[in-house]
Simulated scan of single mutants.
Amino acid sequence: MNLPNKLTVLRVIMVPFFVFFMLTDVGGAANKWIALVLFIVASLTDMLDGKIARKYNLVTNFGKFMDPLADKLLVCSAMICLIPSGKLPTAVVIVIIAREFIISGFRLVASDNGVVIAANYWGKFKTVSQMAMIIVLIADFGGVFDMVGTVLIWIATALTVISLVDYVWANREVLTKGGM
Rank of each mutant, 00 (worst) to 15 (best):
Leu10Ser: 11
Leu10Pro: 09
Arg11Asn: 07
Val12Asn: 10
Met14Ser: 06
Phe17Glu: 00
Phe18Pro: 00
Val19Gln: 01
Phe21Val: 12
Leu23Asp: 07
Thr24Ala: 04
Val26Pro: 10
Val26Gly: 01
Gly27Gln: 15
Gly28Glu: 08
Ala30Cys: 10
Ala30Pro: 13
Lys32Ser: 12
Lys32Gly: 09
Trp33Ala: 14
Ile34Lys: 13
Ile34Tyr: 14
Leu38Gln: 02
Phe39Gln: 11
Val41Asp: 05
Ser43Arg: 09
Ser43Tyr: 09
Leu48Asp: 12
Gly50Asn: 00
Lys51Glu: 15
Lys51Cys: 07
Arg54Gly: 05
Arg54Val: 05
Val59Lys: 06
Thr60Val: 00
Phe62Pro: 01
Phe62Ile: 08
Gly63Lys: 01
Gly63Val: 01
Phe65Gln: 13
Met66Asp: 03
Asp67His: 03
Pro68Cys: 04
Pro68Phe: 02
Ala70Gln: 01
Asp71Gln: 02
Lys72Cys: 15
Lys72Asp: 02
Leu73Lys: 12
Leu73Tyr: 04
Leu74Arg: 08
Val75Ile: 13
Ala78Cys: 10
Ala78Trp: 00
Ile80Thr: 11
Cys81Leu: 11
Leu82Met: 05
Leu82Asn: 06
Ile83Thr: 13
Ile83Arg: 01
Pro84Arg: 04
Gly86Arg: 07
Lys87Val: 08
Lys87Tyr: 12
Leu88Asn: 05
Leu88His: 12
Thr90Glu: 10
Ala91Arg: 15
Val93Arg: 09
Val93Ile: 02
Ile94Ala: 09
Val95Phe: 11
Ile97Lys: 06
Arg99Glu: 02
Glu100Leu: 08
Phe101His: 04
Phe101Glu: 03
Gly105Phe: 06
Gly105Ala: 00
Gly105Ile: 11
Phe106Arg: 04
Leu108Gly: 15
Leu108Tyr: 13
Val109Ser: 13
Ala110Glu: 00
Ala110Phe: 06
Ser111Glu: 12
Gly114Cys: 05
Gly114Leu: 00
Gly114Thr: 03
Gly114Val: 12
Val115Glu: 15
Val115Thr: 09
Ile117Leu: 11
Ala119Cys: 10
Asn120Ser: 07
Trp122Ile: 06
Trp122Asp: 14
Trp122His: 14
Phe125Arg: 15
Lys126Gln: 01
Thr127Val: 02
Val128His: 04
Ser129Gly: 03
Gln130Gly: 10
Gln130Ala: 06
Met131Cys: 10
Met131Ala: 13
Met133Phe: 00
Met133Thr: 13
Met133Gly: 07
Ile134Ser: 13
Ile135Thr: 06
Val136Met: 12
Val136Ile: 13
Val136Pro: 03
Leu137Cys: 09
Ile138Tyr: 10
Asp140Pro: 03
Asp140Gly: 01
Asp140His: 14
Asp140Arg: 08
Phe141Thr: 09
Gly142Trp: 00
Val144Phe: 13
Phe145Arg: 03
